[in-house]
Structures are given as C-alpha cells and as structure tokens.
C-alpha cells in the first residue's frame, strides 16, 4: 500500500472535476487528482499514484525510473498492480 506507482494522464473525466483516466503499464483506471489541483494537470502529464490518488506530478524520466525500480520489487509490485486493477471505486 505504500507504493507510489507512475501513471500517465489519458483524459479528464467529465463526471467529476477531480477525476482523470490514467494509464499505468497498459492498465487504465480513473484516479482522483484533486490533491494536485494547483498543478493544472493535462493529458500526457505523468503522476505518482498512491491508493487511488495522484500525489505528485513527475516528469517522464522520473516515471520510467520509478517503474523500473518497482518492477524489480517483484511480488510487492505485482500485488499493487493487481489491487490497482481490481479497484472499482469509479466504475
């Protein structure tokens, strides 16, 4: 649960002002971006996602670094991605 996983904003979700669709390693989910409202996020931006919330805006290089490190974690990352995939808070 402590992991921050990098995702790229695909599109804003018009159903709610603080929601956006992000792509994490090919898995697309809606996350809450309200904590980054001062960052004026746009599609294409990268964010660090923690328990369904974008907590930090990052650049693409940082996203790739983080993703590589996470993949090396093995099971802990697998569990996190599985949980991310299963999340259905915004269906």
């Amino acid at each position: 649960m402590c992991l921050g996983i990098p995702g790229q904003l695909v599109e804003m979700d018009n159903s709610h002002e603080h929601l956006a669709r992000v792509d994490v390693s090919g898995v697309t989910r809606v996350v809450n971006i309200g904590l980054l409202e001062d960052e004026h996020l746009r599609p294409g931006d990268w964010v660090l996602i923690h328990v369904g919330f974008a907590i930090s805006k990052i650049d693409e290089e940082e996203a790739n670094l983080t993703l590589t490190s996470l993949q090396l974690m093995g099971q802990a990352y697998g569990d996190e991605m599985e949980a991310f995939r299963s999340s259905d808070a915004f269906r």
């Binding site: 369904g52 999340s87 259905d88």
Partner: peptide, 24 residues
C-alpha cells in the same frame, strides 16, 4: 485498493455499515 473503494462499497450496500481500516 483505495479508501474510495470502501466508500463505493458503502454506496452499494445502503443496508450495511462499512468500516474502513485507515492506516498510513
């Protein structure tokens, strides 16, 4: 995965009490 998942479960189960174990 997220506290918002817990809230969703509460919305879907109005006849039940939903408790979220918040740590972190």
């Amino acid at each position: 995965y997220s506290p918002l998942d817990a809230l969703r479960i509460a919305v879907d189960n109005p006849g039940r009490e939903v408790v979220f174990f918040a740590v972190g």
